[in-house]
Design a protein around this nucleic acid. Sequence first.
DNA 1: CTATTGACTGAATAAGTATTCAATGATAGT
DNA 2: ACTATCATTGAATACTTATTCAGTCAATAG
Lengths: 204, 204
Amino acid sequence: MSPRNKELSEEMRTHSRATLIAAARHCFATRGYFNVRIADVAQQAGMSQGSIYWYFASKEDLLKAVLGEAFESLGAVMAEAAAAPGNARQKLDHLLSGLLQYAQEGSQFTSIMISLMGHTNEDMFARLGFDMDAIGLGYTESVLSILTQAQAEGVIPAEHNPLALTMMFFGLFNGLNLVYGQEWLSLPPETLKAGMLRLLGVQN
Amino acid sequence: MSPRNKELSEEMRTHSRATLIAAARHCFATRGYFNVRIADVAQQAGMSQGSIYWYFASKEDLLKAVLGEAFESLGAVMAEAAAAPGNARQKLDHLLSGLLQYAQEGSQFTSIMISLMGHTNEDMFARLGFDMDAIGLGYTESVLSILTQAQAEGVIPAEHNPLALTMMFFGLFNGLNLVYGQEWLSLPPETLKAGMLRLLGVQN
DNA sequence: CTATTGACTGAATAAGTATTCAATGATAGT
DNA sequence: ACTATCATTGAATACTTATTCAGTCAATAG
């Protein structure tokens, strides 16, 4: 009286779950959450609609899983740059490179976040269980710590307000994704980095 | 054998149509097109669902009316700055002031556009009858003309690529709206303008 | 007063889509 | 071989929501 052994079962489960999340990420990123049908995700994953409900309670629950990964990986990029050894200028380079790379590899994440951010369905994120203030604060703090170090080292003039710089920096990064999709990444990285550094007031 | 006279009828019509567009603009901007129900717009306008279909063929047709106004008014801001008299530096100031003012007064438009741009439902705009390439090009050209003049006048170093500057500029402006909603407008206008000018490589 | 027109209503309809669930298939211990 | 277990299926269900339409109302010319 026993079924498949534990290991295989576990393996199937993690595999299917990952397949579904990847399919959902792809669909949400390319067509936007509200334009994607559960049937689309199932087809993309090569599974049935019913299976989705074996792993996720609802379409929103699926979105939650996708977004969770997204927030985490973006946060990691920022935190890594802030924690990197070296002077402020090196950390800034680290941050810019990391974000450019993230924009290329993790472009699906950014697309999804953008497609949701536009919808000021205020409590959508809250309903999903995300504390956006806390998440945003985490990102902000990483960049802020680099900028204040840069001011201390005289790389950025002291008269600039670091919080304002951080906001503009995030605005620029997300805005390029918003307006130009992947297209902005075809600009030379040096041009992009130079622009971001100018925005931040970095003296060359 | 005759109804209400023409003038009154016409008046009712334009009034109701404007009311509906305003209601739709408000709803779309605050909750995002896909989260808004026709019933919501009707309630916001204080009219019945049926009335909407007296004036608009469909929900999309209503969106089209709202977006048409949006594109036009944003284009006007850019074109006005480009056509203003004076040197490049003055035109840049004109542009920045215009956009900041637009962001405050016409914030609903920007929110709606953002809520739609996120959805890479490629042909949505085309289905609505908008040629996005042409519209985007119009905006780009206005800014581009100012930037090339600025380079000719030595206000911006010649080594910068004006198209890249334009893209980053649009990215920054839209990104601030995307990430921070109206909140970014509480930063001092001088701080914002200074940041934008730095991004554009303007020498002070 | 009355007939005619056109704006307007809101309940009914039609379409679309998230979710459920009874049935199936696969596996492995007995 | 048998059976318990659990992932999986996909058609049926339940629900949401855009759209329709038969009818109401207000205004006015005759």
